[in-house]
Design a protein around this nucleic acid. Structure first.
Lengths: 207, 207
DNA sequence: CTTTGAGTACTGTACCGTCCAGTTCTTCGG
DNA sequence: CCGAAGAACTGGACGGTACAGTACTCAAAG
């Protein structure tokens, strides 16, 4: 046999189910995805799915919580802003553009929609994802802003509030538009424009 | 006979179905609501429901589109900002507080979630609601800002962008939090705090 | 040889949309 | 004002389908 993936057969099946379920839920939503679909897509018998995950809800929960590790990239992105007075605007614009581009990826938007859509049925899940994903990025960003403030580059009372305003200025419009429409609605050029304008307003308020 | 509601029997039934369906969809989502539920809740036979609405999708569409008239109140709210230099901040804060309070009503949040959750299945519906609800308020707000700018009270290049920034500063955090959790998460005091802080940042950027 | 999985049939349930037989409301001619 | 034609409504049953989760047999991995 091919020892493609490490970690025994069972672990490989587990992985395959996770990946198939993630793709399926993302594409067709919770109610729109059947356990047969997932089993078929994972090239696995339905019995095996139920061996690894008690029921559909458990499977969904694990899928969603497993995605929170994707925020690590965002954390890294916002954690180190160079403390250089001359190039502050330039650096923030670069950060803002990456911020916007990352959060406008179809996968990210789809995940957002998936969680929001099922926040009624899985309130704990939505709350957990908000705290472990959303708020972690915000507090990290707030820390970075606080450092810039300590060095006199920004004028900030409440760093967390500043981080909130930062993301609100950048994200409110494009993310909302994407939420109500099927998917991303903006070209890279438009996103960059939002980023530039947002940073201009942010610096006018906080420098 | 009691002539409770005007318009013949048929019109009354139509109304009852609309109301019951709205309540049911809001509470339990599209997939979670059965046509039998709606009929029962409206005190109407299922046959009658299908007499008035071709199928479940049509019913849902009409329900959602009927809610766009609620934005009239918002339009009125933002359309007339007093052009008084001395009390500009005060007036904007009052506007911001009403803005936030209105959009944090459970019904409004629930409606948002309902539309977002089904934007995959009903893309036209999401787009229509975004344009007729969301964007109408934004353009009205932009017009109001433009008038203030013409009178020298604000310094604005792109009025629509300013309106976007206005709402982003105010709404991003509380609305997002509410989207991921079950319902509203904030006390009136917290909302007012967000409003005050948002306006402070807005005026720092645009006055 | 034991554990795990494949394949598949099966149970029970939920629900959309239709049909029908009988009842109630509305309307309109007389 | 009266009473019949006709439209709308009721209530329940039904067909068809989809799907969560289980049961069971047989093959294969370790």
């Amino acid at each position: 046999m091919e020892a493609n993936e490490p970690g025994g057969r069972s672990a490989r099946k587990h992985q395959a189910i996770m990946e198939a379920a993630t793709a399926a839920f993302m594409a067709k939503g919770y109610a729109g995805t059947s356990m047969d679909d997932i089993a078929k897509q994972a090239a696995v018998s339905k019995q095996t799915v139920y061996k690894h995950f008690a029921d559909k809800e458990k499977l969904f929960s694990e899928i969603i919580l497993a995605t929170t590790d994707r925020v690590e990239a965002m954390i890294d992105l916002v954690s180190d802003i160079p403390a250089d007075a001359d190039s502050l605007e330039e650096n923030l614009i670069r950060l803002a553009r990456q911020f916007l581009t990352t959060l406008n990826q179809p996968q990210v938007l789809q995940l957002r929609r998936l969680i929001i859509a099922n926040a009624d049925t899985f309130p704990d899940l939505g709350a957990a994802w908000y705290e472990q994903g959303f708020e972690r990025v915000l507090t990290t960003l707030a820390d970075a802003f606080q450092r810039l403030a300590d060095q006199g580059l920004l004028r900030i009372d409440d760093a967390l509030l500043a981080a909130n305003h930062f993301s609100g200025l950048l994200l409110w419009i494009p993310v909302n538009k994407a939420m109500f429409h099927g998917g991303p609605q903006h070209t890279q050029t438009e996103l960059d424009h939002y980023a530039d304008a947002g940073i201009r307003a942010f610096l006018a308020a906080y420098r």
